[in-house]
Amino acid sequence: MRNVNLVFRREFAAYFSTPLAYIFIVIFLALAGILTFRLGGFLDREQADLVPFFEFHPWLYLFLIPALSMRLWAEERRLGTIELLLTLPISMTEAVVGKYLAAWAFTATAVALTFPLWLTVNYLGNPDNGVILASYVGSLLMAGAYLAIGSMISATTKNQVIAFVVTTTTCFILTLAGSPAVLDFFSAWAPADVIQAIGNFGFLPHFQSIQRGVIDLRDLIFFGSLIIIALIANAIIVDWRKAF
Protein backbone atom coordinates (compact mmCIF):
# COMPACT_ATOMS: atom_id res chain seq x y z
CA MET A 1 0.00 0.00 0.00
CA ARG A 2 2.82 2.34 0.91
CA ASN A 3 4.41 2.04 -2.52
CA VAL A 4 1.07 2.33 -4.32
CA ASN A 5 0.53 5.55 -2.43
CA LEU A 6 4.00 6.89 -3.31
CA VAL A 7 3.61 6.08 -7.00
CA PHE A 8 0.08 7.51 -6.94
CA ARG A 9 1.22 10.81 -5.46
CA ARG A 10 4.12 11.17 -7.86
CA GLU A 11 1.91 10.47 -10.87
CA PHE A 12 -0.95 12.66 -9.71
CA ALA A 13 1.40 15.60 -9.11
CA ALA A 14 2.94 15.02 -12.55
CA TYR A 15 -0.37 15.89 -14.22
CA PHE A 16 -0.35 19.28 -12.59
CA SER A 17 3.33 20.04 -13.19
CA THR A 18 2.62 20.49 -16.90
CA PRO A 19 -0.23 22.36 -18.62
CA LEU A 20 -1.77 18.95 -19.43
CA ALA A 21 -4.03 18.89 -16.39
CA TYR A 22 -5.41 22.36 -16.93
CA ILE A 23 -5.93 21.95 -20.66
CA PHE A 24 -7.64 18.63 -20.10
CA ILE A 25 -9.97 19.97 -17.43
CA VAL A 26 -10.87 23.11 -19.38
CA ILE A 27 -11.59 21.19 -22.58
CA PHE A 28 -13.51 18.50 -20.74
CA LEU A 29 -15.72 21.06 -19.00
CA ALA A 30 -16.21 23.17 -22.13
CA LEU A 31 -17.16 20.18 -24.28
CA ALA A 32 -19.41 18.73 -21.60
CA GLY A 33 -21.18 22.10 -21.38
CA ILE A 34 -21.57 22.57 -25.12
CA LEU A 35 -22.83 19.03 -25.67
CA THR A 36 -25.28 19.22 -22.78
CA PHE A 37 -26.79 22.57 -23.66
CA ARG A 38 -26.53 22.54 -27.45
CA LEU A 39 -26.82 18.96 -28.65
CA GLY A 40 -28.56 17.65 -25.57
CA GLY A 41 -31.06 20.49 -25.35
CA PHE A 42 -30.72 20.58 -21.57
CA LEU A 43 -32.92 23.67 -21.19
CA ASP A 44 -35.40 23.00 -24.02
CA ARG A 45 -36.35 19.62 -22.60
CA GLU A 46 -37.74 21.33 -19.49
CA GLN A 47 -37.01 18.24 -17.46
CA ALA A 48 -35.15 18.32 -14.17
CA ASP A 49 -32.53 15.65 -14.83
CA LEU A 50 -28.97 15.36 -16.15
CA VAL A 51 -29.67 12.81 -18.87
CA PRO A 52 -28.46 15.12 -21.68
CA PHE A 53 -25.23 15.57 -19.70
CA PHE A 54 -24.42 11.92 -18.96
CA GLU A 55 -25.56 10.75 -22.36
CA PHE A 56 -22.46 12.29 -23.94
CA HIS A 57 -19.93 10.94 -21.44
CA PRO A 58 -19.04 7.81 -23.44
CA TRP A 59 -18.24 10.01 -26.47
CA LEU A 60 -16.30 12.55 -24.47
CA TYR A 61 -14.27 9.79 -22.83
CA LEU A 62 -13.67 8.16 -26.16
CA PHE A 63 -11.07 10.70 -27.15
CA LEU A 64 -10.20 12.45 -23.89
CA ILE A 65 -9.38 9.33 -21.83
CA PRO A 66 -6.88 7.95 -24.39
CA ALA A 67 -5.16 11.34 -24.20
CA LEU A 68 -4.63 10.72 -20.51
CA SER A 69 -3.79 7.04 -20.65
CA MET A 70 -1.41 7.18 -23.64
CA ARG A 71 1.46 8.54 -21.56
CA LEU A 72 1.09 6.14 -18.61
CA TRP A 73 3.65 3.57 -19.75
CA ALA A 74 4.71 4.78 -23.20
CA GLU A 75 6.30 7.84 -21.57
CA GLU A 76 8.21 5.71 -19.02
CA ARG A 77 9.51 3.64 -21.90
CA ARG A 78 10.55 6.63 -23.98
CA LEU A 79 12.32 8.37 -21.10
CA GLY A 80 13.93 5.15 -19.87
CA THR A 81 12.52 5.76 -16.41
CA ILE A 82 10.82 2.38 -16.65
CA GLU A 83 14.23 0.89 -15.90
CA LEU A 84 14.55 3.09 -12.85
CA LEU A 85 11.03 2.38 -11.60
CA LEU A 86 11.33 -1.37 -12.00
CA THR A 87 14.73 -1.60 -10.31
CA LEU A 88 13.39 0.08 -7.18
CA PRO A 89 12.17 -2.25 -4.44
CA ILE A 90 8.62 -2.07 -5.71
CA SER A 91 6.41 -4.75 -7.20
CA MET A 92 4.92 -4.67 -10.68
CA THR A 93 1.43 -4.65 -9.19
CA GLU A 94 2.24 -1.62 -7.03
CA ALA A 95 3.60 0.28 -10.03
CA VAL A 96 0.66 -0.58 -12.33
CA VAL A 97 -2.02 0.09 -9.71
CA GLY A 98 -0.41 3.30 -8.43
CA LYS A 99 -0.16 4.79 -11.91
CA TYR A 100 -3.66 3.65 -12.86
CA LEU A 101 -5.28 5.05 -9.72
CA ALA A 102 -3.58 8.41 -10.27
CA ALA A 103 -5.07 8.64 -13.76
CA TRP A 104 -8.47 7.62 -12.43
CA ALA A 105 -8.33 10.11 -9.59
CA PHE A 106 -7.42 12.81 -12.07
CA THR A 107 -10.41 11.89 -14.26
CA ALA A 108 -12.62 11.93 -11.16
CA THR A 109 -11.35 15.44 -10.39
CA ALA A 110 -12.35 16.63 -13.87
CA VAL A 111 -15.76 14.96 -13.61
CA ALA A 112 -16.32 16.36 -10.11
CA LEU A 113 -15.76 19.86 -11.48
CA THR A 114 -18.99 19.54 -13.45
CA PHE A 115 -20.85 20.10 -10.15
CA PRO A 116 -22.24 23.50 -11.28
CA LEU A 117 -24.51 21.55 -13.64
CA TRP A 118 -25.85 19.60 -10.69
CA LEU A 119 -26.38 22.84 -8.79
CA THR A 120 -28.15 24.33 -11.82
CA VAL A 121 -30.56 21.48 -12.23
CA ASN A 122 -31.36 21.56 -8.51
CA TYR A 123 -31.95 25.29 -8.74
CA LEU A 124 -34.27 24.93 -11.73
CA GLY A 125 -36.31 22.00 -10.50
CA ASN A 126 -36.47 18.96 -8.28
CA PRO A 127 -34.35 16.25 -9.91
CA ASP A 128 -33.93 12.75 -8.52
CA ASN A 129 -30.51 13.18 -6.94
CA GLY A 130 -30.21 9.44 -6.38
CA VAL A 131 -30.29 8.92 -10.13
CA ILE A 132 -27.72 11.66 -10.62
CA LEU A 133 -25.39 10.10 -8.04
CA ALA A 134 -25.77 6.69 -9.68
CA SER A 135 -25.00 8.26 -13.06
CA TYR A 136 -21.83 9.84 -11.70
CA VAL A 137 -20.76 6.47 -10.27
CA GLY A 138 -21.54 4.78 -13.58
CA SER A 139 -19.67 7.43 -15.51
CA LEU A 140 -16.58 7.01 -13.34
CA LEU A 141 -16.72 3.23 -13.66
CA MET A 142 -16.87 3.55 -17.40
CA ALA A 143 -13.99 6.04 -17.36
CA GLY A 144 -12.07 3.52 -15.22
CA ALA A 145 -12.63 0.82 -17.83
CA TYR A 146 -11.45 3.10 -20.66
CA LEU A 147 -8.40 4.03 -18.59
CA ALA A 148 -7.47 0.44 -17.77
CA ILE A 149 -7.63 -0.48 -21.46
CA GLY A 150 -5.64 2.64 -22.34
CA SER A 151 -3.02 1.87 -19.72
CA MET A 152 -2.64 -1.66 -21.05
CA ILE A 153 -2.24 -0.43 -24.62
CA SER A 154 0.19 2.26 -23.51
CA ALA A 155 2.40 -0.50 -22.08
CA THR A 156 2.91 -2.01 -25.53
CA THR A 157 4.67 0.94 -27.14
CA LYS A 158 6.96 3.87 -26.53
CA ASN A 159 5.04 5.93 -29.05
CA GLN A 160 2.25 7.89 -27.42
CA VAL A 161 0.49 8.64 -30.71
CA ILE A 162 0.19 4.92 -31.44
CA ALA A 163 -1.11 4.37 -27.91
CA PHE A 164 -3.69 7.10 -28.44
CA VAL A 165 -4.98 5.86 -31.79
CA VAL A 166 -5.13 2.20 -30.82
CA THR A 167 -6.85 3.00 -27.52
CA THR A 168 -9.44 5.23 -29.17
CA THR A 169 -10.21 2.56 -31.75
CA THR A 170 -10.45 -0.21 -29.15
CA CYS A 171 -12.66 1.87 -26.91
CA PHE A 172 -14.82 2.88 -29.86
CA ILE A 173 -15.45 -0.77 -30.72
CA LEU A 174 -16.15 -1.62 -27.07
CA THR A 175 -18.52 1.30 -26.70
CA LEU A 176 -20.51 0.30 -29.73
CA ALA A 177 -20.16 -3.47 -29.39
CA GLY A 178 -23.88 -3.94 -28.79
CA SER A 179 -24.99 -1.73 -31.66
CA PRO A 180 -25.87 -2.75 -35.23
CA ALA A 181 -22.76 -1.02 -36.58
CA VAL A 182 -20.51 -3.59 -34.94
CA LEU A 183 -22.87 -6.57 -34.82
CA ASP A 184 -23.66 -6.44 -38.53
CA PHE A 185 -20.01 -6.93 -39.24
CA PHE A 186 -20.09 -10.24 -37.34
CA SER A 187 -23.62 -11.42 -38.03
CA ALA A 188 -22.81 -12.49 -41.57
CA TRP A 189 -20.48 -15.26 -40.46
CA ALA A 190 -20.25 -15.63 -36.67
CA PRO A 191 -22.52 -17.97 -34.69
CA ALA A 192 -25.37 -16.44 -32.71
CA ASP A 193 -23.72 -17.13 -29.32
CA VAL A 194 -20.61 -15.26 -30.33
CA ILE A 195 -22.66 -12.34 -31.53
CA GLN A 196 -24.53 -12.23 -28.26
CA ALA A 197 -21.25 -12.38 -26.33
CA ILE A 198 -19.88 -9.48 -28.36
CA GLY A 199 -23.12 -7.61 -27.79
CA ASN A 200 -22.74 -8.06 -24.04
CA PHE A 201 -19.34 -6.40 -24.17
CA GLY A 202 -20.84 -3.10 -25.24
CA PHE A 203 -20.23 -0.34 -22.72
CA LEU A 204 -23.38 1.56 -23.63
CA PRO A 205 -26.06 -0.83 -22.32
CA HIS A 206 -24.22 -1.18 -19.01
CA PHE A 207 -23.77 2.54 -18.64
CA GLN A 208 -27.34 3.24 -19.67
CA SER A 209 -28.74 0.82 -17.11
CA ILE A 210 -26.75 2.52 -14.32
CA GLN A 211 -27.89 5.88 -15.68
CA ARG A 212 -31.49 4.91 -14.98
CA GLY A 213 -30.55 5.02 -11.32
CA VAL A 214 -30.15 1.31 -10.73
CA ILE A 215 -26.64 0.22 -9.81
CA ASP A 216 -26.99 -3.41 -10.77
CA LEU A 217 -24.39 -5.87 -9.50
CA ARG A 218 -23.99 -7.21 -13.03
CA ASP A 219 -22.92 -3.81 -14.34
CA LEU A 220 -20.50 -3.36 -11.45
CA ILE A 221 -19.02 -6.79 -12.13
CA PHE A 222 -18.81 -6.00 -15.84
CA PHE A 223 -16.77 -2.82 -15.42
CA GLY A 224 -14.87 -4.12 -12.37
CA SER A 225 -13.73 -7.33 -14.03
CA LEU A 226 -12.85 -5.49 -17.22
CA ILE A 227 -10.63 -3.12 -15.23
CA ILE A 228 -8.93 -5.94 -13.31
CA ILE A 229 -8.33 -8.06 -16.42
CA ALA A 230 -6.92 -5.09 -18.35
CA LEU A 231 -4.57 -4.21 -15.47
CA ILE A 232 -3.35 -7.79 -15.11
CA ALA A 233 -2.66 -7.82 -18.85
CA ASN A 234 -0.96 -4.43 -18.39
CA ALA A 235 1.44 -5.86 -15.77
CA ILE A 236 2.19 -8.91 -17.92
CA ILE A 237 2.90 -6.74 -20.97
CA VAL A 238 5.22 -4.41 -19.04
CA ASP A 239 7.10 -7.38 -17.63
CA TRP A 240 7.33 -9.14 -20.96
CA ARG A 241 8.34 -6.17 -23.06
CA LYS A 242 10.60 -4.33 -20.67
CA ALA A 243 13.72 -5.28 -22.60
CA PHE A 244 12.56 -3.46 -25.72
Partner: peptide, 27 residues
Protein backbone atom coordinates in the same frame (compact mmCIF):
# COMPACT_ATOMS: atom_id res chain seq x y z
CA UNK B 1 21.83 -2.33 -4.71
CA UNK B 2 22.24 1.19 -6.04
CA UNK B 3 21.77 1.39 -9.80
CA UNK B 4 22.34 4.11 -12.34
CA UNK B 5 20.73 3.04 -15.63
CA UNK B 6 22.38 4.11 -18.89
CA UNK B 7 21.65 7.77 -19.64
CA UNK B 8 20.60 8.46 -16.03
CA UNK B 9 16.84 8.54 -16.69
CA UNK B 10 14.76 10.72 -14.37
CA UNK B 11 11.29 12.26 -14.47
CA UNK B 12 11.86 15.54 -16.35
CA UNK B 13 8.97 17.44 -14.77
CA UNK B 14 10.24 16.88 -11.22
CA UNK B 15 12.90 18.83 -9.38
CA UNK B 16 15.91 16.87 -8.07
CA UNK B 17 14.55 17.49 -4.58
CA UNK B 18 11.13 16.03 -5.40
CA UNK B 19 12.65 13.20 -7.41
CA UNK B 20 15.09 12.17 -4.68
CA UNK B 21 12.36 12.47 -2.09
CA UNK B 22 10.20 10.08 -4.11
CA UNK B 23 13.04 7.56 -4.42
CA UNK B 24 13.83 7.88 -0.70
CA UNK B 25 10.17 7.18 0.08
CA UNK B 26 10.16 4.04 -2.05
CA UNK B 27 13.41 3.01 -0.35
Amino acid sequence: VGYLPEGAPAYPDMTPLGFLSFIAGVR
